[in-house]
Each structure stands twice: as C-alpha cells, then as structure tokens.
Design a protein around this nucleic acid. Structure first.
Lengths: 220, 220
DNA sequence: CATTTGTGATAGTAATACTATTATTTTTGT
DNA sequence: ACAAAAATAATAGTATTACTATCACAAATG
C-alpha cells in the first residue's frame, strides 16, 4: 500500500508516476542527479541510462530545472506527510513543535513513521542542489505557479506552533525557515567544510542545536 | 588611498586589478552578473559589454565559475576588513561580538567604516548566487586550494569570541555560520518568498533576530 | 631599440539544450 | 477482437555555450 505524495502539476507535462517509463525516469533520475550533480546531469545521459531517448523525457519534464524542482517538491511532500504523522494525537503544542523540529532537521531513518525509500536520496539532493533550484531569475514566476506551496505550508504550520507557544515571539517564520535551511547547510559543511560547523556525519549535532535554539528563544 | 583586499591568487590566471581592462572586467562583470544572474551570464556577453573579446577575459579567468568565486572571495575580503575595523580598540568581548554580528548580518551602508563602492553589488551577488558557487562537485578541490580561507577565517575568528564569552557553549562555529547564511537567506526570502520570513526590505529584522539569538543562547 | 607581453580579430570544436518528424508500438474504448 | 488514439524510439537538426587556437598588431618594459 503506497501513500501518494502531492507534487504540483505545474512541474511536469505528463505525470511521471502514471507510466512505467515515467517511474524509471524518476528512479534513475534521482540516482543520476546524485552521482553527477545538477550541472553535469543531462536528459541525454538519463535517456541512455533508462534505454530511452531525450524526446521521451522532454514529454514528461520541460527541462532539467523543472525536473530538479519536481524532486525537491517531492521531498517536501514526504516531509509534510511525516510532520502530519509526528504531530497527530499529540495535544501539547510544545511536544508537537519538538517532534516537528525532529522531522525537519533530523536524518532520514527507515524506522520512523512515514519513511519512504526515496527520502534518503532526495534529502541528499535537497542538501546539494536546492540552492540552484531556488536562486534563479525565475523564482517569482515559479512562486506564482504555486511551486513552493509545499515548502511554504510547512514553514507556516510549524510557525503556527511557535505562535501558540510564545505569542510574543516576533519572528516565528524566520525562526523555522532558518532551522530548516541551517540543518541542510550544516550537513553540507560537515562533509565538505568541517571547520565551519560543530557537527559531523559520525556525531550529528544538528538536531540538538535546533532544539537548543527553540528552547532558549521561546518563552512559555 | 585605496585599501587592497586580498583575493586568493588561485582564483585567476592574471590579476584583474593589474590592468585597465582587468578592472573593466570586474566592474562590468559585477553589473552583468547582477543583471543576468549566473546561468545567463556569459563571457561573450561580458566581452561585448567591455568592447573586448572572449579570449581576453579567458586570459584573466579560467571560466565563469571561477569568476563568481573571485567576486564572492572579494566580498568576504571586504567583510574581513570591516570586521577588523569594527572590533579594533574594543576591549569587551561581548561588544566585539555585537559589532561583528552587525557587520556580518547587517546591510551595507556608505557611512560605516571600511565601506567600499562594490560592497552593495557584491552582497547582492553573494545573496543570489553563492549557493551555486559552493554546492558543486568541485568544492573539495577548491577548498584544498584555499579558496574558502577568507570565509573560514571569518567564521573561525568570530567563533573565538563566542568561546571567550561562553566557553560552555558547544556549537560556536555552527552558530556563526548559521547566522551568516541565515542573513543572506532571509534577505532573499524577504524579496521573493515573503511568507517564509518576518523581515522585509522596508523594515529589516535580520540584525535584530541575530542579536536575539546570540543574547538568548550565550550565557556570560 | 629589441623583446616580451597583452590584446583584438577571427575561426573552429565539442557539448548542451532543446525542437521536429516520422515510423512503430502500446493502450484504450467499443 | 479491432479501430483509433496515444506514447515511444529513432533520427536529424538548430542555436547557444564554453571553451581553444592562431596570428597580427600595439603597448609596455628593460
């Protein structure tokens, strides 16, 4: 039984989950994006990997930029779902926030509720490439097309928890978007520029840092 | 009287500050990078803008990726210098940290000491494009070549202040690199995705947020 | 004044990011 | 089971990009 994750339909021409070859584009595409990185990734190479042609892939995705946006959107869709599970049946707002921070800043783990196969790889792609997806001259158009709704609604709903806990705190959205972005940054630093951080792949400190900030900054 | 800002020599073939045309490459290049964004920026277009040829620009810079790295490095060189000025003759570590946070997360202003013409434009480029410079398959090589030394030494020296003020705080580097990155992110959000933040171009809250975090998190 | 060095002009190449065409296969509705 | 519609594979082609190479000329340098 599969849970379907919402990905904005403006991101594709033809739904890749609706066909065999579409699913192959996704699974091989994730792999190739990770292996090559966004700049070296091409539809031609992907087509060779799935024994198909460029033209076929272009029928699903407008270009590789949209393909990346699709993957990132998918990731945030998974996180949305996991947030839902992590806060359901929890009445205390503090506890809801704690659980949410765990989901947003922690590492994927097959044991947690709502885990999906692709989450690990997608997270790697988000860490490595999401800056390139966002920081484009097209952001404003894409935002208008609702492409960042998944992400914005995550920030918005967790910020609501912050407001409930401490209505006097003046920067709820900033706090949450910061913690989310920071988690990804620090994980990147930990691998490539370890002197910029105090976390490491062996001993993860990102979640602890995030909890600490929340705890110190919010009064309740 | 000009203060010379250090930019790592591994970033260029020929020092662009050593000739008329090199300086034109820099000044017009900054402008064009801002106008077009990294992906649409090409050496051909830049060559046309300065009435020269691609070949000439390639004699200064290996490619546009290195050109961007050069600009970012230049920016951090300016910030390094401003940090120096902002902490000189200040004896109290707390005050030094406060001043440093101001420099790192505040907006360029012609009135502050050490201000340079290019700072404003360079900061815009850092906000928009620095993710693309860093999140590359070449980070590790570039790091080995000392390309991030400016940035790393900034984080390191400000983190030292944190350690002086609160030796028990376990994440000094993470705290500082977070505040630096966050400032740029939030400024990007404020323009393009305002619902993710609580700052706006009209009413800047980034510095206040940063001070708040420092104040709440460090014990002294 | 001779030599090195930098520049401009021009040409050329491989790869990328697509678009277009057509024949063939697969799916679908009846 | 069969006709019609849709999806795919194969192939070709185009504009742009990111370079590299060559060479003649000008400027700076020692």
């Amino acid at each position: 039984m599969n849970i379907s994750i919402q990905v904005s339909a403006t991101l594709y021409h033809k739904d890749p989950t609706s066909s065999e070859i579409g699913l192959k584009i996704l699974s091989e595409g994730i792999q190739l994006m990770q292996d090559l990185g966004f700049e070296a990734f091409t539809f031609k190479k992907l087509a060779q990997n799935i024994q198909s042609t460029e033209a076929t892939i272009y029928r699903y995705f407008e270009n590789k930029h949209y393909f990346l946006l699709y993957l990132i959107n998918w990731y945030w869709g998974i996180i949305s779902y996991r947030l839902l599970l992590a806060t359901a049946n929890v009445t205390d707002a503090r506890q809801q926030l704690t659980n949410s921070i765990e989901v947003l800043t922690g590492l994927p783990d097959a044991s947690h509720p709502g885990y999906m196969e692709e989450e690990m790889q997608l997270k790697q792609i988000v860490i490595q490439e999401s800056g390139k997806a966002l920081h484009t001259k097209m952001v404003d158009d894409e935002n208008q097309n609702g492409i960042y709704l998944n992400y914005k609604s995550i920030v918005s709903s967790v910020a609501e928890l912050v407001k409930t806990i401490d209505p006097s705190f003046p920067y709820p959205e900033m706090l949450i978007s910061n913690l989310i972005e920071n988690a990804n940054h620090q994980r990147f630093f930990s691998v490539h520029l370890p002197r910029l951080t105090n976390t490491s792949p062996e001993q993860d400190a990102v979640v602890a840092f995030s909890h600490l900030i929340i705890q110190k900054v919010l009064q309740s």
